[in-house]
């Protein structure tokens, strides 16, 4: 069951990545190899196994509801490519 070029294109779109035809073909082959490797797991009967979401599953961590400011607006905006001094500015997006 090979990964199709269409599937790779779709995944690339979702991740906002653009590839050339040649790259897409290479990716399809590489992804197929990875899936082939993982497919090994299908040999095991997992119908009684609860899906594992975390390695350490027996502790939860919560924090107290306390306000602890860490940075100022100026500091935050200093990392932005573009601002008006108050807002972050990005190319126009309208959905």
């Amino acid at each position: 069951m090979a990964i199709s070029i269409e599937e790779v294109t779709r995944v690339a779109e979702l991740a906002r990545l653009r590839f050339s035809e040649e790259e897409l073909r290479r990716m399809a082959g590489e992804l197929e190899k990875i899936l082939e490797y993982v497919r090994k797991l299908e040999e095991i009967d997992t119908s009684d196994v609860v899906p594992m979401t975390h390695v350490h599953d027996d502790f939860g961590t919560l924090r107290e509801d306390r306000v602890e400011p860490r940075i100022s607006r100026d500091e935050a905006l200093s990392n932005a490519p573009d601002t008006d001094g108050k807002f972050f500015r990005v190319p126009k997006v309208i959905e």
Partner: peptide, 22 residues
């Protein structure tokens, strides 16, 4: 008082970008 996953204030009725944590 604070946000879901960080300690910045959970209030947005103020000047823009006042309560922003990394």
């Amino acid at each position: 008082e604070s946000k879901a996953f960080s300690g910045d204030k959970a209030s947005f009725q103020s000047e823009p970008n006042q309560y922003i944590d990394p």
